[in-house]
Amino acid sequence: MKYTKLGNSDLKVSKICMGCMGFGDPTNGMHTWTLPERESIEIITNGLDNGINFFDTAIGYQNGTSEQYLGKAIRENASRQDVVVATKFLPRSEDDMKNNISGQKHIHNMVEKSLSNLGLDYIDLYIYHMWDYNTPLYDILEGLNEIVEQGKVRYIGISNCFAWQLAKANALAEMNGFAKFISIQGHYNLIFREEEREMIPLCQTDNIATTPYSSLASGRLSRLPGEESKRMKEDYYAKLKYHSTEAQDLEIIKRVNELALNYDVSMTEVSLSWLNTKVTSPIVGATKPHHVSGAVSSVDLNLSLKDIEYLEEPYVAHDLVGVMADNKVSATDSEKVWAKHTKDKI
């Protein structure tokens, strides 16, 4: 395994981050394809044994059971200081708002629940799961800064946002002496490269770590069409993200397979090797031992510049999907949102 520094932090992380969305009680949440406790801990332990020290989960994954399984695996199989744990908190709910739970209070409630689920004393990277248009940004940043100062969280990150939002948030944090976001977790892979327009250049300029999710496009970049996994069959959201671009993406997938045959490696290794030339540490889900071995092996595959250009050449622009499509606002609207969130706080 190879390791790198996570943006503007002192965290040393593996070049593969194990995504924990596939772990959690399959009877207690949105998904039926997740692994129960014993199988989850086996996969996490496999990752630890193969040098992975960076794990990403969320309070929203299977009603917190993903956090619970990850925490138990770490407590039983690793030294806490050797592992970097990232988890994410959800925006305020309608009930929170009706009960006048402030953004600051909401974050305190969320982090305490995650710490309890994990059974750990602190979280290395606490991530704002998605932009909350109903809560003032200042309140979010102040609440996050408070839990950093209390030692419950070491660093903060953000997920599912636009480059203008990340830039504005860090500017507001700097003006008020708050902790700044040191990482971004966005949707980015070989067949969905829209982050390259604005987010990637911003992160390169400000040394913000990039830890993308959907690194293998929900399995599409790890196998040829027709070879479906249980998740690909049952995960409606994963299908939604790529359904409209299947024809456009197929040429790239074919080229991944071609290079995999040339190098005598898996498609997973080729796809992740490409991504590792672009980002800090891609998040890779794993529910089987070969998922772990393929991800780990990818860090040793060195694609040539010609290979990279060959893989990238067929790409065409994609529409935003999922959370980011729901959050899409015009430039004018974005300034209105910014003004609303920062009014009387600067």
Rank of each mutant, 00 (worst) to 15 (best):
Q165A: 06
V321H: 00
D82C: 09
F162R: 06
G71H: 06
T268F: 03
E227A: 11
L70C: 07
C203A: 13
L221A: 06
N109I: 11
E37W: 02
E76F: 11
S297L: 11
L272N: 01
P136F: 09
G151N: 08
V296I: 07
A73I: 05
N176A: 11
L70I: 06
N160G: 06
D121N: 15
L202D: 05
N117S: 08
V13C: 03
I308E: 08
L118A: 06
A171V: 12
T287L: 08
I43D: 01
K328N: 09
G226M: 12
A209Y: 00
I253T: 05
N145I: 03
A73V: 07
D132Q: 09
L144C: 12
V148G: 02
N302Y: 14
E335I: 13
G226K: 08
L305Q: 14
Y69L: 11
L125N: 02
T268G: 04
Y263H: 08
I16W: 01
T280V: 11
G64M: 03
K343N: 06
A260R: 04
D95T: 14
S330D: 14
I191Y: 01
S66P: 02
K98G: 11
I283A: 00
N170E: 05
N117Q: 10
N100I: 10
D82V: 11
A217P: 01
K278E: 07
L320V: 11
S266H: 03
G64E: 04
A339H: 13
S159C: 08
K113T: 13
S93N: 13
K288T: 10
L141C: 07
S214G: 07
G186A: 14
H106A: 10
I123L: 08
D132H: 12
E174T: 10
V256F: 05
S298H: 02
N189F: 05
T342S: 13
Y188D: 01
V13F: 02
I346C: 07
E146K: 08
K328R: 15
L250Q: 15
S93K: 13
K306V: 14
F55I: 05
L90C: 15
S114K: 01
N63R: 14
M18N: 03
E149V: 10
R92E: 10
M199W: 02
M175R: 12
T205K: 15
Y236T: 13
D132F: 12
I308P: 00
T65V: 15
C203P: 02
L224N: 12
S304G: 12
G64Y: 00
K239F: 11
I43E: 00
V284T: 01
F54N: 04
S297N: 13
N50I: 04
N145W: 02
D10I: 12
L221F: 04
L259A: 02
V13E: 01
D82H: 13
I44F: 02
K5L: 15
K168C: 13
G29S: 07
H318T: 12
K88A: 03
Y122L: 07
C20S: 02
A58K: 01
D333K: 12
A209M: 09
S222P: 01
D206F: 15
V296Y: 00
Y236P: 04
M130V: 15
L172P: 00
T32L: 08
A325L: 12
C17V: 08
A173T: 01
S229V: 04
N28H: 12
T27M: 09
A238S: 12
L216E: 00
I184Y: 10
P282L: 05
G226N: 09
V292D: 00
S229T: 13
K72A: 02
M267H: 05
E269L: 03
